[in-house]
Simulated scan of single mutants.
Amino acid sequence: MSKKITDESGLEIIETPEALAGQINKAEVFFLKNRKVLAGIGGAILVAVVAFAGYRFYIDGQEGTAQNALSSVVYDFEADSLSKALNGSGGNEGLLSIADSYKGTDAANLANFYAGVALLKQGKYDDAISHLESFSSSDLLVHARAQSLIGDAYLEKNQAAEAITYYKKAADNEKNEFFTPVYLMKLALAQEKANQAADAVASYKRVIEEFPLSSEVVNAKKYMGLLEGQVGK
């Protein structure tokens, strides 16, 4: 019979060579009984690894092409030629095509952001929301910007409750002196439209108290004063 000792933590530790040999024999028996299953698992893991490597190779190859296509269309976007930017011109792919054709690349991700902004400017709010929701960024400031734009689209659709959700996300994402007060002002406006007067007052108050040096403070005080007068506070 194998001898065992117990360490300070109370765990049993195998001590003798005979005991170790017994454990090895058990492992061999387990492998022989289950070799087909284990071989299948090993094969599946290998297939998954190879598939992922192949996917990354494909995406890396696509990235250069997508980046070139995006650089050609950004000029149209910056020149406010929205239709050309979205649909392409002169043989160049547009933002919509880049976002769809090169999925998984950084260029396609950025194309979704640009497309969302362009569609928002065109008044195509549902399409704008779809593209902006497909965009992601590890840069929290950029991510917050996308959330705010989605809020803008919902507010334009007179869906104040949905706008509030996204403005809150934007306002609470990487708070800073430059953008957070703007998001809070938008949030307060949406809350007013949703007949949430008390919440709107609280949002205006946040601008005043948390960002006293921001340019939005003057309007925040004015709108909060008007709102408090209306609700009798």
Rank of each mutant, 00 (worst) to 15 (best):
Glu210Gly: 10
Ser203Val: 04
Met1Tyr: 03
Thr180Gln: 08
Lys168Asn: 09
His143Arg: 14
Asp100Arg: 04
Leu184His: 07
Ala202Ile: 00
Ile13His: 00
Leu119Pro: 07
Asn112Ser: 12
Asp106Thr: 05
Gln147Asn: 06
Ala153Phe: 06
Lys84Gly: 02
Lys36Leu: 13
Tyr223Lys: 14
Ile164Asp: 01
Glu12Val: 15
Val37Asn: 07
Gly10Asn: 06
Val73Asn: 00
Tyr58Ser: 13
Lys4His: 08
Leu46Val: 15
Ala188Lys: 04
Val201Pro: 04
Leu86Glu: 03
Asn176Leu: 00
Ala128Pro: 13
Val207Asn: 05
Leu155Val: 01
Asp80Phe: 07
Ala107Ile: 00
Tyr75Arg: 06
Tyr102Trp: 02
Asn219Thr: 03
Val217Gln: 11
Leu189Trp: 04
Gln23Ile: 14
Asp199Cys: 08
Phe178Ile: 08
Lys26Val: 08
Leu82Glu: 01
Lys193Glu: 15
Ile150Arg: 04
Ile59Asp: 01
Ala188His: 09
Asn68Glu: 14
Ala190Gln: 00
Asn173His: 01
Gly91Cys: 08
Gln196Ile: 07
Lys221Met: 02
Ala48Glu: 04
Ile45Asp: 01
Glu216His: 08
Lys36Trp: 12
Met224Cys: 12
Glu18Asn: 07
Val47Lys: 05
Ser83Arg: 15
Asn92Glu: 13
Ile45Met: 09
Thr180Glu: 11
Phe77Cys: 09
Leu32Gly: 01
Met185Val: 11
Asp7Tyr: 03
Ala44His: 02
Asn219Tyr: 11
Tyr167Asp: 03
Leu11Tyr: 10
Val207Arg: 07
Ala202Thr: 10
Ser148Arg: 12
Phe211Ser: 07
Ala51Cys: 06
Ser203Pro: 05
Phe57Pro: 10
Glu18Ala: 15
Phe113Glu: 05
Gly116Arg: 00
Gly42Ser: 11
Gln191Glu: 15
Leu184Thr: 08
Ala111Asp: 12
Thr65Ile: 08
Val47His: 02
Thr105Leu: 02
Leu70Pro: 10
Leu110Ala: 03
Lys193Ser: 12
Tyr204Met: 06
Leu11Asn: 11
Gly22Gln: 01
Ser89Asn: 06
Ala198Asn: 10
Gly88Asn: 10
Val29Glu: 15
Glu133Val: 03
Glu162Met: 04
Asn173Arg: 11
Tyr58Ile: 14
Ala220Cys: 09
Gly104Lys: 04
Ser101Ile: 04
Leu141Cys: 03
Ser83Thr: 15
Ser9Cys: 06
Val142Leu: 12
His131Tyr: 11
Leu140Thr: 12
Ala197Cys: 07
Leu119Asp: 06
Ala171Asp: 04
Gly229Met: 14
Leu119Gln: 03
Glu228Tyr: 05
Leu187His: 01
Gly123Lys: 05
Ser137Tyr: 00
Gly54Asn: 10
Gly40Trp: 07
Leu110Tyr: 03
Val231Asp: 06
Ile5Gln: 13
Ile208Glu: 13
Asn87Arg: 13
Val29Ile: 14
Tyr58Leu: 15
Ala27Gly: 11
Asn176Arg: 04
Asn219Lys: 12
Glu63Met: 04
Glu78Gly: 06
Pro212Glu: 11
Ser203Arg: 08
Asn68Phe: 02
Asn68Asp: 15
Gln62Thr: 00
Asp60Gly: 02
Glu156Thr: 01
Glu78Arg: 05
Asp126Asn: 14
Asn34Val: 03
Ile208Met: 10
Lys4Ala: 03
Asn25Gln: 14
Met185Phe: 15
Leu227Thr: 13
Ala19Asn: 12
Asn158His: 09
Asn34Glu: 13
Asn173Cys: 13
Gly229Ala: 14
